[in-house]
């Protein structure tokens, strides 16, 4: 693997973020140290949504321009997005157990994230099941676009489900406090901004590495076909 300035910068930025989160950011008064997972959870969620948003955009533009690079970009972004969604779905329950008293609750946001994961894992499986590059690109573009239409429906239906049937959530005050979104102390806010920046860099680094792999694979596939 060749040296990449982007990857190196991202690695340093994530390292600095971790140091700042652990050593130089105050511990939250109500939740204690558990709250610090927030500096990984929220940036990972941001990157996951960004990644899937870009999949939908690249998919739509692919069907218009038919540039194979857009398909490779969508493929790469989807895979990186699934990795970050897995981080979100792992860190969330770890925080939820001490704070909400439960690993999982069928909240609209949690459920939508879980379904994002299902859709884009399906997207990756679909790509693996089609051999013809052009057919694969068109199929995955269609799924990439449809997925973007589905998420609002999942969110809406689960939101309405919960509104009609309220479920007990332990640690409600903490959850409420989060939803009312009080102003963060400046140290915490700056740590969060740093974390968001470093995770976005990490996304760019992963995306670029995965994109190179997709290009190399595309060339290899073409050679096999022509031989």
């Amino acid at each position: 693997m060749k040296f990449s300035w982007l990857s190196a910068t991202a690695a340093v930025a994530v390292g600095l973020t971790v140091v700042r989160v652990v050593a130089f950011t105050p511990i939250e008064a109500v939740q204690g140290p558990a709250q610090k997972i927030y500096y990984i959870h929220v940036p990972a969620a941001w990157v996951a949504f960004l990644a899937f948003f870009l999949v939908a955009i690249a998919s739509a533009v692919y069907l218009w321009l038919r540039d194979i690079r857009l398909d490779r970009f969508a493929e790469s972004s989807a895979e990186v997005g699934v990795v970050f969604t897995t981080v979100v779905l792992t860190t969330g329950p770890l925080w939820g157990k001490p704070i909400w008293g439960t690993y999982w609750t069928w909240d609209a946001r949690l459920t939508s994230t879980l379904f994002l994961w299902f859709i884009y894992v399906g997207y990756i499986v679909l790509r693996g099941a089609v051999d013809d590059p052009s057919l694969r690109a068109r199929y995955s573009a269609v799924l990439g676009i449809l997925g973007a239409f589905l998420i609002p429906f999942i969110h809406m239906s689960v939101y309405m489900f919960r509104t009609l049937h309220p479920m007990p959530i332990l640690g409600q005050p903490a959850a409420l406090a989060r939803d009312t979104n009080p102003a963060l102390p400046s140290e915490m806010r700056n740590t969060m901004l740093l974390a968001l920046l470093s995770f976005t860099l990490l996304y760019a680094a992963f995306l670029s590495a995965r994109y190179k792999l997709a290009t190399a694979r595309g060339i290899a596939e073409a050679e096999v076909r022509d031989a």
């Binding site: 379904f115 299902f118 859709i119 399906g122 449809l146 589905l150 999942i154």
Partner: peptide
């Protein structure tokens, strides 16, 4: 089923 079921959830 893998592709369609998430869409059937709503």
């Amino acid at each position: 089923p893998m592709l369609a079921l998430p869409f059937f959830v709503p």
